[in-house]
Design a binder for these strands. Structure first.
Lengths: 224, 224
DNA sequence: TACTACTATCACCGTTTGATTACAATAGTT
DNA sequence: AACTATTGTAATCAAACGGTGATAGTAGTA
């Protein structure tokens, strides 16, 4: 899943330069010399960030963004402009810009500001997932997806699976699991882990064909 | 619920100037001349934004922020510095900064960048609508529309629903909800949340056919 | 094969947790 | 003041969860 950046900039050489530099950083870009077809694109494609020149012939870039906002499009925007007076900065921000670059700017700063904005806005979408083979855990939603279908786990089962998945290829002994999954000060028997593992196995692999969790006799359990 | 900005700046007159200008815009500020007591404050108070001078005597501001990030504190940061070379900008961003201001800067630009970051991070603080399935919240008018008809919610119910809708697919535990919805310093019981959720459910889905809010046993609640 | 040590599995049942209702306290309104 | 709306807390109930003991199973070893 790559990141798509839409650029509106009427100076063709600058546009190319921006596309080149962002492309080199692994971003996908779509460049436009004016705002004509931009709305259609925004409706069709999942655009992650817009770089918008404010000094466009015809429409003002900030006016265009303001109209996007009115129609409910909240894609983040970085304005680009030669104007560097406070009043213009203000106007740009007020109309829904997330950042501001004034020409001339270095390509390095462009890339850095782009990354900073994306870091802020993309959060949570990809972070917080753990994967092992065809199992995916999402920590935030506490969901478990196996082979594209949702599996229901109890809190203990989820925590247990998370402990195992966060330590792939490492054998976790019962003492460790009781400490980290069960936690607290209560004393439990080692056997408790066996039963919990068993219940977990039953849920994530009912027909026992996958063998996700391997028992290491005399030690503990592991995903490997 | 006001916005709290924490400022670390060793030049006392500049610090005062910043506090004055941000205060005038309705922000609460806490100023520090060094990083000594900052961590304690971050742990106690809900800080919305940090303004961090990089040229501090002793610790580098960016190094300090890097250590915050390592300990899991993700409060947004704007770096302030006299250094304006690319390499330093880069270092600031890489270490978890969200924006960068170089001295000398105008108070107007400071305020604008602060607002821009807050807009981005606090999401839809007052602007815009939030939707989930056939529920639409309007933050400005604090109204709730479900299936095209208006639903009356109390303040608490609205705030609770907003918290859930602003964190779709994320399980919110009771502690989080008490902190963010109830706020304040009072101590409430976890059970308080149950009852509030129950009342909210009754209003948004009287015949219990929609199942908007899912209970995650042992953890909390989520919209999913 | 026989023995041993460890593990899987099952069923039971106490504990925990959440839903729901009722009540009390408080604040806001008329 | 009387009334109403709001919301925290207590009480009750039902259900889910999970720890434990008993028993069966299995791998390792001689």
């Amino acid at each position: 899943m790559s990141t798509l950046i839409l650029i509106v900039e009427d100076e063709e050489d600058i546009l190319e330069l921006m596309e080149f530099n962002l492309g080199r950083e692994g971003f996908e870009t779509m460049g436009f010399l004016n705002t004509k077809r931009v709305i259609e694109v925004l409706e069709e494609e999942k655009v992650d960030l817009i770089l918008m020149d404010r000094n466009l012939p015809g429409t003002e870039g900030s006016e265009f963004v303001a109209s996007l906002r009115r129609s409910g499009i909240n894609t983040p925007v970085i304005f680009i402009s030669a104007k560097d007076k406070d009043e213009h900065i203000e106007e740009g921000f007020e109309r829904g810009g997330d950042d501001y670059l004034t020409k001339p700017f270095s390509m390095k700063e462009l890339v850095l500001r782009v990354k900073a904005i994306l870091r802020r806005t993309q959060k949570t979408s990809t972070e917080g997932n753990v994967t092992y083979r065809d199992i995916t855990l999402n920590l935030a939603s506490r969901t478990v997806i196996i082979e594209n279908s949702l599996i229901e786990l109890t809190k203990l089962e989820f925590d247990l699976l998370y402990a195992l998945m966060g330590n792939q290829n490492i054998v976790l002994d019962r003492e460790y699991l009781l400490e980290h999954v069960w936690g607290g000060d209560e004393m439990y028997q080692d056997r408790t882990v066996n039963v919990a593992i068993n219940r977990l196995k039953e849920k994530i692999d009912p027909d026992k064909s996958k063998e996700y969790i391997k028992t290491v006799r005399g030690v503990g359990y592991t995903l490997c």
